[in-house]
Nucleic acid binder design. Sequence first.
DNA 1: CGAGGCGTTCAGAAATGATGAATTTAATTT
DNA 2: AAATTAAATTCATCATTTCTGAACGCCTCG
Lengths: 289, 289
Amino acid sequence: MEFYHLRSFVVVAETKNLTQAAKRLCSTPPAISAHIKTLEQELDTALFVRSTKGMTLTEKGQLLLIKAQKTLDSAVDMVNLAADNQDELIGHFSLGLNQSIQALKGAEFIDNISENCPGISLQLQQSSTGKIMTEIQTGQMDGGYIYGEIPDGFTAIEIKQENITTIAPKNFASEKIITQLDLAQSMWITMEQYCPFDKVLKQKLGTSIQSKVQSAHDQSRLELVKNGLGLSFIELAVAEKEQLTGDIQIIPQLSFQMPLSFVVLTKRLNDPIVKALIQEINILWEAPL
Amino acid sequence: MEFYHLRSFVVVAETKNLTQAAKRLCSTPPAISAHIKTLEQELDTALFVRSTKGMTLTEKGQLLLIKAQKTLDSAVDMVNLAADNQDELIGHFSLGLNQSIQALKGAEFIDNISENCPGISLQLQQSSTGKIMTEIQTGQMDGGYIYGEIPDGFTAIEIKQENITTIAPKNFASEKIITQLDLAQSMWITMEQYCPFDKVLKQKLGTSIQSKVQSAHDQSRLELVKNGLGLSFIELAVAEKEQLTGDIQIIPQLSFQMPLSFVVLTKRLNDPIVKALIQEINILWEAPL
DNA sequence: CGAGGCGTTCAGAAATGATGAATTTAATTT
DNA sequence: AAATTAAATTCATCATTTCTGAACGCCTCG
């Protein structure tokens, strides 16, 4: 049994699909299949049930998965310790941004990193809260900015409370008083499938919102609202600027604050690169250590 | 980095000697050397300082060794879990005996094992407390019987308190009253370098005992005492039987009790084979679970 | 100063793992 | 009912890694 067996085991368990797992591991299905098979023989235990839909863990597989993850974590821990106190950090960090680069001080951040951690190469990736979370969880991304609550397994640094407001097309209910029911029954342009604003609105409107169009891109949502396709959310400052041009209206009843946080996987807190990045994030947003 | 790198790392750290490590790993020095080298490159850290005497850990190596051991333990944990609740246990157990097979109910034990755990093959190894402890620690032996205190890292089942007495040649101080000083200054035939009886005697006689001959074998010590080479310890029952033949005398002033225990490595308590063996030991000595 | 340990280097040999095409299976679609 | 799709697996071949045994260099010890 070697580490690559465990890695394959864990990834196949996550993806429930050998083909995808092979892709994620930069390998091919036959190779990963052989890993699993070898592991099963060595442990003398069936880890997965195969079907044409994919591979799902057996009960014993679920138990063993936890142990396998612990073992891999332990190995990562060792590698991290080795990298600690090394003269220069060398590595790569993929950072997810759920807002514009300007809003998240991207340029300043890059400057700081290349100044303080010249060995770390940085990749900024424009994305959305939901995608950022899943990509961090699968290891495709190392950290990022997200809105809303912090899921289990993540560690967060709260950057600020963002003022969010609702915007509507200029002519939306222009002649009557806008009721909560109006808002609840309207069509919304949400940000993504699992939108952190959704929960807030459920609390406020007592119902889930209906949405047929999603866009994680601020400017796109703004454009869609302008074209009368529905309501959406946007940062207050942006909304106010746009209101001046006169194509939208702000619905102040539905304003709220939403925490913006920088998050990484808790299990990676010992990674020296993650440590360094967290320090830089703290510097960037002027929060004390 | 794979498991075999860590295994080599740990064993070399233990033996401080690449050649011995290679033997213990059933491999060759160049192979193990390459493992260490690869690991050092991958971790970008010197793990050992090489000298003509052998290999000793660097400071960082000492830190990393702990992590490496944890990782390997974690993997063993997983394998153990996999083997748990398996229909039939299959494996091998090397058992160290510090007394005669009869005294430790060897035959009955073998019977029980082959009855209750037919998949486990057993190897009995006549040895001494000290050797058994070191061999268990290095993994060459899986468990065994020892006298005296239980060292760190071991888990023990106390079997009984053995009555030990001192025997002397027939003509030893036959005409005078034997004083403690006489005993302390006499030549002793001890059992081994690190003799568990030594401590007891230190307490009783207030000094360490001098010994030029060691033998872990009861009958050999008996023979040497008979030939007037010095004093020694032996189980009371054996001594009394021998006294009848008239070649030795018992020195009842120096009798004491010594715990006899079955021990295994604590870290191996989760090993299903170890679990099974412990159960059998409990049955053998009629101790409740 | 020579013998014996010890770790390392090196070239060839052996073992292992990866790959891509073909196969199998079963669910889904036409 | 047939065709299609998506999934895992098998297999022969290829590429890579790893192991081995001999030779080497270094140091210590008698």
